[in-house]
Every structure is written in structure tokens, then in C-alpha cells.
Computed example of a mutant assay.
Amino acid sequence: MNPWVLFAAAMAVGGAFFYGMDVGADREIAKQKTTQELVDAVYDKAQKGAADSIAAMEIKNVTITQPIRTEVRTRTVYAECKHTPDGLRALNAAVTGRAEPIGQGELPRADPAPPRR
């Protein structure tokens, strides 16, 4: 067999291999570019949709005035519930709606600081 024919055949096979690799690489680059363009388009549409939704929101400040509902529960056990007299007065005032002034609006006297040891 002629060595030039073998050389030509080897060159043809090698050229076809490298041509195929180049075409495959180009095809992969094109596919990645198409995918990236699709991702960018979806991202832009999502950003626009979110911005439109936020812009369409209406902020309303509403003051709700309604009576407090009380629930009557039976068989409630308050075995461990302990309040101070002032706390009990405040709770009763909140439940009945009658606030009693404690100490005629005066603050208690400040205690002196304890001595440092």
C-alpha cells in the first residue's frame, strides 16, 4: 500500500474529526446563547411584572374601631394565675372599661440606689 494514500486517509479522518469538533462546539455555543437569551428575556419580564404589581398597590391607612369581644369560658382553671393588686385593678379596668386613677396621677418616690459592695 502506498504510504501517501495512508497519510491522506489519516489526514482526511483527522480533518473530519476536528471539523466535527468545531461544528459541535459552534452548535453548543449557539445553544447556550439561545438559552441565555431566553433566561434574560424571562428575567426582564419577571422584573417588569413585579414592578408593575408593586406600582399598582394602593396603600390605605385604616383605623378600626369596634367593641372588644369578650368570650365566656367555662371550666377555666386559674390555679397558677397571680396578679399584684395594681395589676388586677388594671385588668379589671380594661375589662369593664372604667379606668381608675392610681395615686391621683403622682409618681412614686424614687428609691435610693443600693450601696456598692
Results as ranks from 00 to 15, higher is better:
Gln47Pro: 03
Pro112Asn: 08
Ala55Ser: 04
Lys45Leu: 14
Tyr78Ala: 03
Thr65Trp: 00
Trp4Cys: 07
Glu28Asn: 12
Ala8His: 06
Ala16Asn: 06
Asp40Ser: 09
Val23Asn: 08
Gln66Glu: 10
Ala8Tyr: 12
Ser53Asp: 04
Lys33Asp: 11
Thr35Asn: 12
Thr84Lys: 00
Ala93Trp: 01
Val13Ser: 13
Thr76Asn: 04
Lys31Glu: 02
Arg98Ile: 12
His83Asp: 11
Pro115Leu: 03
Ala41His: 13
Gly14Tyr: 11
Asn2Tyr: 06
Val72Gln: 10
Pro67His: 07
Arg75Gly: 04
Asn92Glu: 00
Pro115Phe: 02
Asn92Gly: 11
Gly49Asp: 10
Ile68Val: 09
Val77Leu: 09
Lys82Pro: 00
Ile54Thr: 03
Gly105Ala: 02
Gly103Val: 05
Ala10Lys: 00
Asp52Arg: 15
Gly103Tyr: 07
Lys33Tyr: 06
Arg75Ala: 11
Phe17Gln: 09
Pro85Asn: 11
Pro85Leu: 02
Ala46Arg: 02
Thr84Trp: 01
Arg69Ser: 10
Gln47Phe: 06
Leu6Pro: 02
Glu71Met: 10
Asp52Leu: 01
Gly97Ser: 03
Arg109Lys: 07
Gly103Thr: 07
Glu100Val: 04
Pro67Phe: 03
Lys82Glu: 00
Glu28Pro: 01
Ala55His: 04
Cys81Lys: 15
Pro67Ile: 01
Phe17Cys: 12
Tyr78Pro: 01
Asp22Tyr: 14
Glu71His: 09
Val77Ala: 08
Ala55Thr: 11
Ala113Pro: 00
Pro112Leu: 04
